[in-house]
Nucleic acid binder design. Sequence first.
DNA 1: GTATCTACTTAGGATTCTTTCG
DNA 2: CGAAAGAATCCTAAGTAGATAC
Length: 768
Amino acid sequence: MSGDHGHGGSQVNSGSKGSDSHKHKDKHKDKEHRHKDHKKDKEREKFKHSNSEHKEHSEKKHRDKDKLRHSDGSSDKHREKHKEKDKDKERRREEKIKSSDVDKPKKEKENGYVRDMSPAAIKSEPEEDNGFYPSPHHKNAKREYDDEEFEFKPKKVKTEHDKKAKKRKHEYEEDEEDEDIKPKKKTKDKKVTEGKKAKKEEEEKWKWWEEERYTDGSKWRFLEHKGPVFAPPYEPLPGNVKFYYDGKPMKLSAPAEEVATFFAKMLDHEYTTKDIFRKNFFKDWRKEMTSEEKSKITDLNKCNFSEMNEYFKAQSEARKQMSKEEKQKIKEENERLLQEYGFCIMDNHKERIGNFRIEPPGLFRGRGDHPKMGMLKRRIRPEDIIINCSKDSKQPKPPPGTKWKEVRHDNKVTWLASWTENIQGSIKYIMLNPSSRIKGEKDWQKYETARRLKKCVDRIRNQYRDDWKSKEMRIRQRAVALYFIDKLALRAGNEKEEGETADTVGCCSLRVEHIKLYPKMDDQEYVVEFDFLGKDSIRYYNKIPVEKRVFKNLQLFLENKQPEDDLFDRLNTSILNKHLQELMDGLTAKVFRTYNASITLQQQLKELTCPDDSIPAKILSYNRANRAVAILCNHQRAPPKTFEKSMQNLQTKIDEKQNQLSAARKQLKAAKADHKASHDEKSKKAVEVKRKAVQRIEEQLMKLQVQATDREENKQIALGTSKLNYLDPRISVAWCKKYGIPIEKIYNKTQREKFAWAIDMAEKDYEF
DNA sequence: GTATCTACTTAGGATTCTTTCG
DNA sequence: CGAAAGAATCCTAAGTAGATAC
């Protein structure tokens, strides 16, 4: 064990933050390090849904200056308290678990199982509104899964013997399966001798979506796994690879050397030129040094890692050059690891784990202007890991000579293992793959919630428009914020701890400096210009005309404020979500993003798809619809490094094609002249042939040009995120069915696995 | 009401694998 | 066939949001 000294057990808050006692809402930061460098500057058109115009009325102003600000000099977070707190926490958790009915015998039917309908699970009475969904989720009852109740097919409780009704598949799902199942098979023929009531059950394809869901808030009955895979131990550098300090070679102790290699590996990365990164790295590196090293190495600028850097480059080059057999071997080893650790058994089914490897140690790479970039991410040991599994499972064994931090049996959560990370002190989890039942159900549910929003969005929109006129400042702020969230698909914008993360915002945390108001701009009135860094420090830039009333409200909110003050000083996400919850059961700010994304896709597909188009043309339309959503959601990417070049290549092809074309045209002309002169059949034919050639080349050229446009449009837009997280897959599936597009043209294998439920259940007439 | 903790979704970039091109 | 381009997958950071503590 090389890398990790000293950080003992209770790392809940050990080290790091010194920021503790200015927690109040006041935001006086030095503007200094506030996103100077917006890396992405392209303006983007926005998609708006049409809002019916409301008449303007004269505006009565409300003044509300007394903000919520105050300082409280919070003293309650002293470290001494932590131990007690921890104990307390533990006690509470234990109680919680106990009270859950994990162990209640009643639901375990010795052979297969039936999901429980415990008292807590009994559905509550249907509710007002459209009467469409049954249960308001009672505050104290766990959220139940019954949202989508009425959308579901009749449920059957399947036991796993139930050999699936494969036959019910629709044609192209069949296709899909054919080509899909093979790769799968190979990972499949392991016998699962699950300890439980299991049997071989190589579930051909388990249709969890046809089964009952838990309604008592529990996530599983049985859970067994082998624990995580740890990062390989540090391998010291060979003796001939040296580190130089101040020009002289210096042998480092193993711990110091390991951390040095983290830096050395990143030498080519821009990170290592950043001051904060270097500062943080150096500070943490010194912690790993022996006292001797510490006294010698005092200046990072005198450190020369280039030999180490060369070594690693050579290594990766060598890896590439390995022979087929060697590569094969590595592949097999990985496969073995995957088979052993990559799956778990949850409720009688073998499910793929999403991330069964523990994150290796390294240097923290925050995004944007992250104050902690370069800090050392320490090595995670078994002693840091909490294992979660069911009591009656075979517990995972820690590596020889080690212990888990804890083994618990909490079926109210979905994770298999967790640890506390040392940079932010947050908890990391090992969870299942998106194709798993537990993720899939949740995903499905998400879209059902969004569909419920569709049914009442008009009402909600009317309401917030009304609220723009409220006497109460907080209501107006809430209403304007909600308008932005709805219209612009902004994120909610939770507060963040200052100085702990990059300075980014969402709707509720927008500051005065992030918007500009233009009563008139060109031919438009009441234009708001947004310019801020959102999640992942991606810039959001947009100019958008808003309704007069919104504009007036914004002016009001801005009065007497400094640039660094909150725009919505009377609002936060918790207030907003509480309000939304009252408007619709299960409604939160993020549902608007899902809803607007999905509805936009559906509507764009309707608009853009020409039934007579060829398949590639239809797919182009699909991508355009997808792109509309990505633009709405501001999903950007850095233009690929090779972008310019690949564009050039394409352009070259286009040029060639153009030359071909003019050549062909010339020939056509010549042929025509020839024909005119001779008027014979032969020359007439020649003309036709040439004409055809020209036409064909024109088409090819067109295609290339479309491709170029498409690629250019996609330069800094990422389609994947919306496809994976915001677009109800049933819309895409239905579209494919309707137009006879093979589903693989839209979803790759992984995506098909994730969306198996949608592929199985959506028909061509599916409406979001 | 506010701060903190926890669990889980969403996100872009890095890395690896596969296909295409010369 | 090898390199380059492109697609898929991996990785893990950075959000949201609910629960709980204070």
